[in-house]
């Protein structure tokens, strides 16, 4: 049993899941906004990165890890609300390329401002989990306390979002506002407020993701820390379908596992190449995502 758990394929799966839950969180965060506003938030990673800087460097530099994390999440939610009210509101009803351009511009502003304030050098976050793998019968299991913390946190966040959407009145309103805004407005749902709440939730998820990414001993927190993660998260969301939260999570974890196998058996440098190839092929075969039911586009 021990030999099996520490074997090469199982190690790859474990490492892949650890990476994959992060991609899944980014994908979830993108799907939350795409479903309500039909907007792909290219600044998602940068907004989350700013939230982490605010929590861990600006407001609570010497505080306990968990306090700083809560501050980061609150900051993330605030940034989401401000972005929706201050920037995105101007873009509703415009040609679909305008929000893309605006969010890319916003990404550039956020990363440059972060680098101007906090410099581009990497900072470690004081997470209390060891990045050293557990040992099993004298051989390393590809799972460390830190990886377990990542997976558990991601599952908690996913569970929270799923529960919110499925079991609460707010979740019902959010779904209604996303699916049929005009009808919901007639039935008394404040659609604009629901849009803001969607951004708050998405940015909160993003903040948790960025804290997890930056807590990693090897990467740390930099203004561009989320760029690569965002690319993988977008690829996962696009493969799974931007309309399907479950699909985004499943394809995020799957992507993590597949890429870990590529990294282990082929070459670590080729990971992004394979991801790009997967994206191109999957978009050609199923343009709306693997997990989305086919729907006729409204003209």
């Amino acid at each position: 049993m021990n030999a099996f758990l520490t074997s090469r394929p199982v190690s790859d799966i474990l490492t892949g899941v650890t990476n994959g839950v992060v991609y899944a969180l980014v994908a979830l965060s993108l799907v939350l906004i795409w479903r309500s506003a039909r907007l792909l938030n290219f600044a998602q990673g940068a907004m989350a990165m700013i939230a982490t800087y605010v929590g861990f460097v600006a407001i609570a530099p010497h505080a306990n890890y968990w306090v700083a994390m809560v501050v980061s999440i609150v900051a993330g939610c605030l940034i989401g609300a401000l972005t929706e009210r201050g920037l995105v509101r101007w873009l509703y009803g415009k040609p679909e390329l305008n929000p893309v351009v605006a969010m890319v511009g916003f990404l550039l502003v956020l990363e440059s401002v972060a680098a101007a304030i906090w410099s581009t050098s990497s900072r470690g976050l004081p997470s209390s989990f060891s990045p050293i793998d557990w040992q099993l019968g004298g051989r390393p299991l590809a799972l460390s306390p830190f990886a377990a913390y990542e997976i558990v946190t991601a599952l908690l966040v996913m569970g929270f979002i799923a529960g919110l959407f499925r079991f609460t009145k707010l979740g019902l309103r959010l779904r209604a506002a996303a699916l049929a805004p005009e009808v919901s407005r007639l039935l008394g749902v404040r659609v604009n407020r629901m849009l803001t709440i969607g951004w708050v939730l998405s940015s909160g998820v993003g903040a948790v993701t960025a804290v997890l990414v930056a807590s990693n001993y090897f990467t740390g927190l930099t203004p561009t820390a989320m760029d690569g993660v965002f690319a993988f998260g977008f690829i996962a969301a696009a493969i799974g379908g931007l309309d399907s939260p479950g699909g985004a999570l499943a394809s995020g974890v799957t992507l993590g596992i597949v890429l870990q196998f590529v990294s282990d058996y082929v070459n670590a440098n080729d990971v992004i190449l394979v991801a790009l190839g997967l994206l191109i092929v999957s978009l050609m075969v199923r343009p709306n995502g693997v997990f989305t039911r086919d729907a006729q586009r409204r003209v």
Binding site: L39, L40, F42, E96, L97, P99, V100, V104, D227, G228, A231, F234, I235, A238, L242, N269, D270, V271, I272, L273, A275, L276, L279, I280, L283, M284, P287, R297
Partner: peptide
């Protein structure tokens, strides 16, 4: 893929290409 894709998806794909270019 642009044969079947619309705006934001395509933008994301080209972004992935830009990020992957170094590799």
């Amino acid at each position: 893929p642009a044969t079947r894709l619309r705006g934001p998806y395509l933008a994301g794909m080209t972004l992935a290409f830009a990020v992957a270019f170094g590799s």
